[in-house]
Design a protein around this nucleic acid. Structure first.
Length: 803
RNA sequence: GCGCGGGUGGUGUAAUUGGUAGCCACGAGGGACUUAAAAUCCCUUGCUCUAAAAAGCGUGCGGGUUCGAUUCCCGCCCCGCGCACCA
């Protein structure tokens, strides 16, 4: 008998699948389509880790299941190749990102194949190739054309030594990642001109479409909070002794009479002009301090701070003079960057008022207004409208909807990204590169250090940089910013349907057939990536190149794999698990895949259990042994009684596993397969022959296990005599008639407590069941001398007596 | 602080509509095979009491609804994750 040794056949089948192209999707097929995919991968030198193994196996199982069910199933593959790590590596090691990617990506091919993932390699994409980023640039081009791309200044982290912008993750403990010695300076903040996409124009549309999505609920909620819609009003406060006015946003205009001071953010544009001379030094010092604080410092700060500006604002409802303060608990990026403070009804304002001894006026009691002039006694809700209307009539207020979400900052002062297709002309400003000239090719460099003038290394590629203005033909320079990599990943799912198209971003006809993505999963990016992808899809829809308005039909936000103690795996701890090591140690990819899908529900984080893979390996070994014994058994029939049991086990297993795969409860699907193997072992002990019933039982089980353990299933499938792959059109269907049992067990309760069990014929009626229950010796003991007040009968479940 | 999950054996978990709590697996114990070990196969395994049976207890805690609650309602405790001063 052959022993179960995955090393002997996993690689063999991977090669055969490659050669025969079983996983190549025919996008023109007449079959119903299905596309399952996981969020794509950033290829780093470290190779795949156990988290990748988890993520991609989830979508692979789904794609395989659907392929077996007869769908034209597509499990695409691509690389999110632009990004900071490759650039950092280039700066430190001097290896160009192009070169590292050319080495890293092929090594990923091997690793993905070793995992047994059913990717369609013919349609592979990579975001750093000109054939791809041409269309990333085109999206910017179209956004600009449609008035959805604009430039504005924003504060950025800045390293004085390199004279360059830093990303958040390049700031470590307040210092630049490359200059973190004791003598190195803290990072600064500097205003830098950036490109933005007007995602806020789509805020309502995105918000309203969220509820209907078949997505993990927590992600939908995170998106709604991220968009952060709130209704309120903007109210103008005149500044005492000046023509200026201070506009604030509030969701509680009903508390206007309780406003006792105003607060503006340290970055507020009016701060300098309203500050009085006496207060100027203090305000300047506070502004500087706020600017220097790292985000960590601000977070760590428990106590609120602030300084008085010396200025006063006039409350438009009652003419009261309110002192204007500046404090960093008011954020410049939200609302108008200024608030009216109502300490009686806002915790933060109260804390501030108490600390600085500012007055507190209560204006709400119960649900009614007090101390509010003509509005006294009004219900809160009504008063909100009335106060805004009254002020609006005088031109002091505007009803306003506010969003937490801000426009998408899409430019990066980086080399390793898609160049922004803009030419800066001294005459005509920022001019789009003519559409026909796309892509703007990223020039190859030797030195990837930032240029030293705040621009990326691209500023040194002088041949590339110097060009002519498309408008006037005069000398001009290319934009040296590159595009945020979130743009690359906001549209890649559609490129999968037409990856080699040179004429357009994709053929709308193919995309309209294949979109949306039927199944998408990942354990990250609950907001940014998923929201950007939705935004870009809606943009494409407006452009008329796609009929859908949402990219992902179903989205599963899966849990992570953690160390045995529940902590995250980390490089510094060196406690990572290498999937390839486990495969090569002899357990094979199938046991690893099956364990990952079995350990916990997909939405939960799964703790790594060193005994887990040996456990699933044992299960696959049992299935293997069973098949070998069947192959060695003699032809013939088994008893009618056994055939019935075989049929029942087989069809129950098919039913349960089909349902579980459909609703993404993979762990219980695998438990069902394990139970089936156990049942078949018991039946085997009675008799094993090459009967049609045994053949059906094994084939069905092997087909149902195939999504999880594709190599083992394929090997056994062929051993059973098939010449075509188990991975296409092999999913068995179940027949209800085999599920019924002759006798069933009913629970018998007395006063809600279980007192016995009785066997009755499956088709027994209520009277028979109740009689059988009463006849049970133990139950009779409890019923003796009692009056049965009520009898409850639940078919197939129980009989319950109330005495 | 706010929001979202979750709390079930020694452990990961299951229980799909309010109906026999603990499927499946890990671990543990026992047995078979073996010179031996590994592997494999079989059995036991929520707790208490017990030789066993029987009985009692048991899904974070306290109440409630119900013939019957892991499931529904009210109040509380704890853990994890996300966002973090959002006016």
């Amino acid at each position: 008998m052959q022993r179960y040794n995955p090393k002997e056949f996993e690689q063999k089948w991977q090669d055969i699948w490659d050669e025969t192209g079983v996983y190549t999707a025919d996008l023109a097929s007449d079959k119903p389509k299905y596309i399952a995919m996981s969020m794509f991968n950033y290829p780093s030198g470290a190779g795949i880790h156990i988290g990748h193994a988890m993520n991609y196996t989830i979508s692979d199982v789904k794609a395989r299941y659907k392929r077996q069910q007869g769908y034209e199933s597509y499990h695409p593959i691509g690389w999110d190749a632009f990004g900071l790590p490759a650039e950092n590596y280039a700066i430190k090691a001097g290896v160009s990102p192009q070169e590292s990617m050319a080495q890293i990506i092929p090594s990923y091919h091997k690793q993905y194949k070793a995992m047994g993932w059913s990717n369609d390699w013919e349609k592979e994409i990579a975001t750093h190739l000109p054939e791809y980023y041409k269309w990333t640039q085109w999206i910017f081009w179209k956004m600009h054309e449609q008035g959805l791309a604009y430039q504005d200044a924003r504060m950025q982290w800045w390293c004085e030594k390199d004279a360059t912008v830093l990303a958040n993750e390049q700031v470590i403990d307040g210092k630049c990642w490359r200059h973190d010695g004791p003598d190195d300076p803290l990072v600064q903040k500097k205003e830098v001109k950036q490109w933005f996409f007007k995602i806020t124009e789509y805020a309502d549309e995105l918000l309203e479409a969220t509820d209907a999505l078949d997505w993990t609920e927590s992600v939908k909620l995170a998106q709604k909070n991220w968009i952060g819609k709130s209704q309120g009003a903007e109210i103008d406060f005149k500044i005492d002794g000046s023509d200026d006015q201070l506009t604030v946003f509030t969701t509680r205009p009903d508390t206007l009479y309780g406003a006792t001071f105003m607060v503006v953010a340290p970055e507020h544009e009016l701060l300098d002009s309203i500050t009085t001379d006496e207060q100027r030094n203090e305000v300047e010092a506070y502004k500087k301090a706020a600017q220097l604080k790292s985000e960590l410092d601000r977070l760590a700060e428990k106590e609120k701070t602030g300084v008085f500006t010396g200025a006063y604002a006039i409350n438009p409802v009652n003419g009261q003079k309110l002192p204007i303060w500046t404090a960093d608990y008011v954020l410049v990026g939200y609302g108008t960057g200024a608030i009216m403070a109502v300490p009686a009804h806002d915790e933060r304002d109260e804390e501030f008022a108490t600390k600085y001894d500012l007055s507190i006026v209560k204006v709400i009691e119960g649900d009614k207004l007090v101390n509010s002039g003509e509005f006294d006694g009004q219900i809160i809700k009504l008063a909100q409208e009335n106060i805004v209307n009254m002020l609006a009539d005088k031109g002091h207020a505007t009803p306003k909807t506010n969003y937490k979400m801000r426009d998408w900052s899409v430019s990066r002062q980086r080399y390793w990204g898609a160049p922004i297709p803009i030419i800066n002309c001294p005459e005509h400003g920022a001019v789009r590169v003519p559409e026909a000239d796309l892509p703007v090719i990223l020039p190859e460099l030797d030195d990837f250090q930032p240029s030293g003038d705040g621009r990326s290394a691209l500023a040194r590629a002088t041949d590339w940089l110097k060009t002519t203005c498309p408008e006037c033909g005069g000398p001009a320079e290319r934009e040296t910013d590159t595009l945020d990599t979130y743009i690359c990943s906001s549209w890649y799912m559609f490129r999968y349907f037409d990856p080699r198209n040179q004429q357009q971003i994709f053929d709308p006809e193919i995309v309209n057939k294949w979109a949306p993505i039927d199944f998408y999963n990942g354990g990250d990016h609950a907001t940014a990536h998923l929201l950007y992808a939705r935004f870009v899809t809606k943009f494409f829809h407006k452009l008329g190149i796609i009929k859908h308005t949402e990219p992902f039909k179903q989205m599963l936000y899966n849990g992570k794999v953690t160390a045995s103690d529940g902590s995250a795996f980390s490089k510094s701890k060196g406690n990572g698990i290498d999937p390839l090591e486990i495969i090569n140690s002899g357990y094979g990819a199938d046991a690893l895949r099956t364990y990952l899908m079995f350990a916990a529900p997909l939405e939960f984080s799964a703790r790594w259990d060193p005994q887990g893979v040996p456990g699933t390996h044992r299960f696959l070994n049992r299935l293997w042994t069973l098949t070998q014994e069947y192959l060695e058994a003699s032809a013939g029939d088994t008893t009618k009684e056994q055939d019935k049991d075989l049929k029942r086990v087989t069809h129950q297993t098919i039913k349960k596993m089909t349902e579980d795969l459909e609703r993404n409860t993979y762990n219980t699907a695998i438990a069902t397969a394990m139970a089936a193997v156990n049942d078949l072992y018991k039946l085997k002990a009675q008799a094993l022959a090459q009967s049609p019933e045994w053949k059906e039982a094994l084939e069905a089980l092997i087909a149902c296990v195939a999504p999880f353990a594709p190599h083992t299933a394929e090997e056994l499938w062929h051993q059973l005599g098939h010449s075509t792959s188990v991975h296409k059109d092999s999913w068995p269907t179940y027949n209800e008639e085999y599920l019924v049992q002759d006798t069933i067990t009913l629970a018998v309760q007395v006063n809600g407590k279980l007192r016995g069990e009785v066997q009755v014929a499956a088709d027994a009626d209520e009277a028979t069941a109740v009689a059988a229950a009463k006849a049970n010796q133990k139950v009779a003991g409890y019923l003796e001398g009692q009056t049965i007040r009520k009898t409850i009968y639940v078919p197939n479940k129980l009989v319950s007596f109330v005495v």
